[in-house]
Every structure is written in structure tokens, then in C-alpha cells.
Write a protein that binds this DNA or RNA. Structure first.
Lengths: 386, 386
DNA sequence: ATTGATTGCGATAACGTTTGCGATAGATAT
DNA sequence: ATATCTATCGCAAACGTTATCGCAATCAAT
């Protein structure tokens, strides 16, 4: 025998039960042909409960000040439409109530988050972290936050990161690809979505977007020529995986050899994955050659340092018997003995240039596609100083 | 002579001009006592224009599918209320229309961004970047993004970063304080705001929040005792600025001396700001002492390496004349000759432990305040191996 | 009295989601 | 038949802002 009151006609006579919905009794008023369930307090309770522990919003200030939300918003944004008195009153009120604007809501309506994303293979090696440092610095100066994702040199993770970042959380993206990234479909997908993307350091030649890179070919040329001038003729070249864009360094190496009339020996050129074992294996193979090599040019400072230590452990004198060069100018090259000759690619500047390019695009909406090369410089140290 | 039509009564007879508002003519209908301006297309045009180049939203899918927005939302979220057929239809439609959910809107309603913030003094030194690596790794595993701010060892920047991050953009914060941070008011302000905060590495003792730190005192004790056992009696201790929490290392040093009955000499304990000049000055002062010191314990590996190079340049034999110890186990300590004895503080593990603590708080809402110490280990190398 | 201009503020519609609840139609039980 | 359930789906209210426009009141100039 239902004893519910119809919310419409307020009668209790002609009410019938009409099933149970989500656990609650449902009624039907024959008079006004209206279905209803009993009054629910849940939602009210929920909103009331929230009121207590949540941050103060514009609404709260508006209530406290006795004005509308729009007035509060404009007052805090120094809009001239609001009189100076109310403006000041609202601002002091906001301060005492410890108001902090909700950036999510702002971003949602402004369609901009003041955040840029960075996808980088690794942030623990000084080489990359110094780029990151440059990026973070410039971005912060312009009031932009930076969210960082490591791809760990995994293409799959890179793709996933890209997906995750592009969903409205960032105004622009900086990406430095994986060693194994040969397919750029994931980037192509995103390019026409409207948000600016800049590639840095490891870039793809055939994608028409802004990019910042180092003068690898020239650097490798300078290193190789330096070795040649120091008297080396059989120069082992240690490269990364073949896919890598920075393998342009190979060209510099070849050019230098050609220019100085030195024959090219394929056995002197080795691709490794930068793991310690692979590096040592390559060096061992070179050492067994006849005649022996007289120089090693490693595309990575880290490997070069490993090589120096390995050669020393085998009582091979550097640079007298074998000269060693690196590439990148990491700090360890300065510490190792003999100190490492290398090429300073100015990682920090690369990072800085990349953000600047990106911020230009974001702020000024310039769609001109710039490709920027950062010039490095040869640093001669003991490991080649015969 | 106005010829406008009243939007209410549709008459054109009794319309009067009534000023110009924001550049547009305003009218007044005497019949219905109604003020109005002419029809404005601006807003409509704006929304229409947006339709073209913007991303697809739930609304677009709903229109295309001929269902309501809520149905689309529920379908994509696998809500059982939606029939399998519509669910599948909507999902394929979403795929072909290349739908990507707007994370901002989601975060706004869900009150969670799946993003954690990190404030760190510097991300370019391996010491900190390896913590960061650990943080990023674990966070990514749990589906959390990481936004990073460098404080550059500036307290002011740290405070600003904190402000910027806490405005609803992050679900939790990881903070490693500046060398100069002695005042923690900025943190206190935020602590009761509801979002979890975890301190790591450089922590404050008197703030009752979760923290992860290294066993500095024990580490310093181990290092000092190791030096003593190797025969050193006059051990110079190079500390950071006095405010720094990691100066607990001083206690370890003192304990070891006390335990082994070695008198404490204040001149042997120096505070520096980690700059090269300050370090060299401290070392010089020690070298001039009578009798000479026989060991140096630097609180930072970086300084220790600098000291080794400086001593070598002065023809001082390490460890025979002076032993040198660092703290932190950075990579350079392995490269320098002689290789550096140091204490491995397991930076990566500190980072990992810190995120885990934070994620526990965020996800499980456990309010238990945990303080976690990460144990390090002594690494004996050539620089103390007499 | 008519018209023009300005100042200060409120209402309201976005922004793109999620979600509680209502509301049908058909199925099932009584 | 009547009463109840169930399976699907829509409505509308949030979330916290910003921005457009409306509107009253006031002042000034015809």
C-alpha cells in the first residue's frame, strides 16, 4: 500500500507502485500520469560535503562578496569594467580566502595549458639531461611548464608517450627520437592536429616540421681531419645503430678520408648498440687487424671513455699507439686520463633553440618551418695529442 | 529613423534608438518595454568556425551516431547500461573520427589529473637526474605523467614553482629542497590543501609529512671509520652550506672520531657553497696546516673529483700522502684516477621510493605518514687504498 | 524630450567530460 | 490483466573558468 505523495499534484490517493529502479521503489500517479521515486538526498549531501574541504572557487568569493561570479573573475583579471573599489575589495577577499585559480578550468576555456611536452630517450645521461636543462630553463622563463616522458630508447614507449601527451594537456611538443625509430607514422598522425611539434637532436630528414640539430657531418669531418693531421691513417669508426639520423657523422668521416687521399676500409667502420660488450668486441676486432689501427673515433663520449679504460688495461699507450676521440663533450671526457679529445655539440644550446622555436610557434603562431643547425666546436685534449 | 524589429513583439512601429553599446546601435521597444541590439552573428560565426579545425568531441560522435552525449561517453567507457551493438558502433565511429578524449575536461570533473609534480634543484647533474629517472619510471608504470621544475638552487624559484604547480594541475608533489631553503612556510601553506606531498633526499626534520632520505649519518660514519682504519688521523671534512639537512653527515664524522678516540679539530671542518673556488680555498687552507692533513672527506663526489685533480696538479700523491673520499657515487668517481672511494646513496632508489610513497597516498588515500630511509653502501676504491 | 555615450555589474553560454536519475518499451511474474 | 523488472538510453547538473551581451543608471548634448 504505497503512501507516497505525487510531486506534481501533491496527492497521495491514486499512487501505484511501479517497479523498483536501482534498488529504490518507484511510484506512478494515475492522476497526472507521472512516474517518480522518493526524494533523494544523496546528491545534495554530496555537494554539501564537498563545500567543506574543497578549495575556494570564484563562486565562494562571489558569495562572500555579494557579487556575481563574472564580477569576481573580471576583478581578479583587472578588467576595467569593474570599479576600483569593488576590484580592491574582491582582491583582498581573494587573498584572505586563499584563492588559487583552477588551471584546469582556465585551460579548458582558454584552450591553452601553458605546458609543453618533451619526449626524450633518457634523462639520466648528462648528454640528454643538459638538453633538458636548457629546455626547462627557457620554458620556465616564458611561464611554461614542462612535462617530460622518457622513451628509454624504446620505439613502442615513444609512440605511447606521444599518444598520452597529445590529448589536450600540452600546447606544444619537443621530441628527440629513439635509436630505433625508423617509422614516423605516429608523428605524422599528430602533425596536422594543430599543435606545434619540434624535433631536436635526433631528427628525421623527410618530415617537414621544424627541427634543431647539430652539425654532425662537419663535426665528424673536423675530428677525422684532426686525427689525420696528427698522423693517423687507420682510423676505426664506432657508429650507433644504422637507423640513427646522427649517422650523418659517417659522411664527415668519409669526406675527410677522401680529401686526404686515404683509402676507405669497411672493416674500420662498425655499428654497435652502445652496450659495453658490443663496444669491447668491436675494439678487440680492430686490435687484431694487420696492420694495427692507430686511432679510434667513437661517435659517443661514453663509449670513448670505456675504450680508453679498456685500452689502458691492455697496456696500450694513448695517444702514442692509438689515439682516441669521442663526440659530444660530456664531463667524463675531462676527467678520464688521458683527457678525451672530442667535439662539443652544445647540447644545452640545442635544447634552448628547440624550445625557442616551439614557443615562437605557440605564441606567435608563425607557421614558417625553420630548420636550425647548432654549430659545435672541436676540443683537442690529451687523447690525440701526440 | 530606426527600422529595427522588436525580437519580442515583432513590431517595427514603436521602436526608438537607445544609445550605442559597445559600438553597436541599441534599440528600445515602447510596446514591450524591451531593450535590444540588432542580431549578432559574431558568436554564431565563431562557433561555426571552430567546428571545422577542432578535434572531435563526444558531441561530434553523438551527432554522427544519432545518440546522446552521455550514451557515447558510457559506450566508450564500457558502461554495461549501453547495449553491445551501440557500444561497438560508437567505438568504431570514434576510431574512424579519430577521437581523443580531452584530458582537461576529464580531469576537471574527475578532480584528478594523473600527473605528479617534481621540484628538484637541478636536473643536469647525474646525482639528481638519476633520482628523476627513478621517479619518471615508476610514475609512468602507474600511468602517471611527470611535470618537472628546476629550482636552480634558488629558494625564490622553489617557492614560485610550488605555487605554480599546486593549482590543480597535479595530484601529488615530490620535492627536493634547495641548498638555501631554511624556511618551509611555503610548504606548510600547501600541506593542508589536500594534495599529497613527499619530500625526498633533502628533507626537513620538523615537518610532519612523508619523506625519503639516505642514511647520511651512517654513511659518513662508515667513510670516516674507513679512513681511520686506513691510518688517517687528521681528516678534513668538506661540508655544504650550514642549512642543509644532509649536514647530518657531520654527526657521522664526529661519531667515528669519538669512537676511535681522535680529538676533534674545528679547523678541519669547513662549510663551502660547492663552488670550485670555495673548494680550492678550503683545500689550500688545509694544506698549510701544521701538521699536514692526511685525508679529505668531501660531502660531494663532484668536489672530491675536483680535489683529486687539484692535489695531483700539486704533485701530491693520492692516497699515500692524502686520502680522498667522496659521497654519492657519481659516475665520474669511477673514471678519475685514482678512482674515488665514496658512499653509494642509491639515488635512483630514493627517487623510486619517493614516488611509491606518493602514489600510495594518491591512490589508496592512506594518510599514514611514513618516513623511509634508503640504505647506502661504502665503495672502497683507489683513492683511500694505501 | 530625444538621442548619445559611459560606467558598473549580472546572466548566461560556452569549454568537454562524467554521472545520478528519470523515463520509456518490452519482458516477466502474479 | 495487473504489477513488477530489466535493458537502454536521454536529460541535466555538475567541474571552475572566461567572455559575450544585456541592462539599468547616469550624464551630456541636442
Amino acid at each position: 500500500m504505497p503512501r507516497a505523495k505525487c510531486p506534481k499534484c501533491q496527492k497521495i490517493e491514486r499512487i501505484l507502485k511501479s517497479g523498483i529502479i536501482r534498488g529504490k521503489q518507484r511510484f506512478y500517479c494515475k492522476d497526472c500520469n507521472y512516474h517518480f521515486t522518493l526524494v533523494h538526498e544523496s546528491r545534495k549531501q554530496k555537494t554539501e560535503a564537498r563545500k567543506n574541504n574543497d578549495k575556494t572557487s570564484l563562486k565562494d568569493i562571489a558569495n562572500a562578496a555579494g557579487v556575481s561570479i563574472s564580477t569576481v573573475s573580471r576583478a581578479l583579471n583587472e578588467h576595467p569594467d569593474i570599479s576600483i573599489e569593488t576590484r580592491m575589495a574582491i582582491k583582498t577577499l581573494a587573498k584572505t580566502m586563499d584563492y588559487q585559480p583552477n588551471l584546469l578550468a582556465q585551460s579548458l576555456v582558454n584552450r591553452s595549458t601553458h605546458t609543453i611536452g618533451v619526449i626524450i630517450p633518457n634523462l639520466e645521461t648528462t648528454f640528454f639531461s643538459s638538453m633538458l636543462g636548457g629546455i626547462q630553463h627557457i620554458a620556465a622563463q616564458s611561464g611554461y611548464r614542462v612535462v617530460i616522458c622518457q622513451s628509454d630508447e624504446s620505439h613502442t614507449i615513444e609512440v605511447a608517450n606521444l599518444q598520452a601527451l597529445m590529448n589536450n594537456m600540452i600546447d606544444g611538443l619537443l621530441i628527440c627520437h629513439t635509436l630505433n625509430t625508423t617509422n614516423f607514422d605516429h608523428l605524422k598522425m599528430q602533425i596536422n592536429r594543430g599543435i606545434p611539434i619540434v624535433q631536436f637532436y635526433r631528427v628525421s630528414d623527410n618530415l617537414d616540421i621544424p627541427k634543431v640539430y647539430s652539425d654532425d657531418e662537419s663535426g665528424a669531418f673536423q675530428i677525422t681531419e684532426h686525427l689525420i693531421k696528427k698522423g693517423s691513417k687507420k682510423i676505426g669508426l664506432l657508429l650507433g645503430p644504422k637507423a640513427l639520423s646522427i649517422n650523418k657523422r659517417l659522411n664527415g668521416y668519409l669526406k675527410a678520408l677522401n680529401l686526404h687521399g686515404i683509402e676507405i676500409d669497411d672493416k674500420l667502420i662498425k655499428h654497435v648498440d652502445f652496450s659495453y660488450n658490443a663496444v669491447i668486441k668491436a675494439v678487440d676486432e680492430w686490435l687484431e687487424m694487420e696492420p694495427a689501427i692507430d686511432a679510434i673515433f667513437s661517435i659517443s663520449d661514453k663509449c670513448a671513455v670505456q675504450i680508453i679504460r679498456y685500452l689502458k688495461s691492455k697496456k696500450i699507450i694513448i695517444p702514442n699507439m692509438i689515439s682516441v676521440c669521442g663526440f659530444g663533450n660530456e664531463y667524463t671526457g675531462e676527467i678520464v686520463e688521458p683527457q678525451l679529445t672530442t667535439f662539443d655539440v652544445k647540447t644545452r644550446e640545442i635544447g634552448e633553440a628547440a624550445v625557442k622555436l616551439l614557443l615562437d610557434q605557440i605564441i606567435q603562431k608563425t607557421s614558417k618551418i625553420k630548420k636550425q643547425m647548432i654549430k659545435g666546436s672541436l676540443i683537442v685534449r690529451e687523447s690525440t695529442d701526440k
